[in-house]
Design a protein around this nucleic acid. Sequence first.
DNA 1: CGAAATGTTCCTAG
DNA 2: GCTAGGAACATTTC
Length: 262
Amino acid sequence: MPELPEVSYQKKYADATILHKKIIAVETGDKKIYQSPKSDFEKHLKNNEFESSTRLGKYLFLKLKKTGVLVMHFGMTGKLDFYQHDETPKYTQLKLIFEDDSKLAFTCPRKFAKLYLAESVEKFQESHSLGIHALAISEKQFLDICDGRSGTIKGLLMNQSLIAGIGNMYADEVLFQTKTHPKTKVNNLTQKQLKSIFDKIGEVLEVVKEARIEGKRVPESYLTRLRKEGEGADCPRNNGKIEQTKVSGRTTYFCPVCQEEV
DNA sequence: CGAAATGTTCCTAG
DNA sequence: GCTAGGAACATTTC
């Protein structure tokens, strides 16, 4: 459940289920998930309640009524599961039991997720050198970030310390929508191309976010939905066959006809 | 059986 | 400091 649109879905889910309910019990799982001692989590969460939630990049922040914030990073496979029965879900790493006997499980089979306790969203952003939230960035901020960079555009889009929230799938989508080859060096892109990439970041994330929240599919014109078909799938614009390569160490899908290499 | 999977971090090397 | 590439992490799924 990892990139910004999926985290938006988790935020909506949390808002609809767990706010303003007293936590009466806390059960913790694998130590590697916890970025502070597990006893701290138990101490801070028990007899407390969540007041509100915020999202920054791929992180979800749950503000506690007493003090501080519970910070969630979903890794590749983390998600929230709210339920009222007695069976603890598989792969539960954190379980909270509320006063009304409802429960929240934070599950993660691959255990790449992380949980933190922080004083505030701002302090966490600073101490983890998180960049600007991908849906809050201005065109000028984006152009400033691009200025003087020598790496690939895909690497830049996925760099969380520059822009927070874009991962492998939606970096590919933005570059497909702007007909940019993922290996293009940032300093070889014109201002006009960069502006178009900026526009599509907002558009792609909004469109996918809506789709995730509403439980709808992403548009037919999107590359995202072809990822599972892999190489050889037809380009949504009927221009060629989708190819696969590696950029910045990640599996990258693109259409060699639409996204010509420079 | 082997490979790959929406992420981050750490290491090496240029 | 920036960037690329690879490995590691742990488990499921194809």
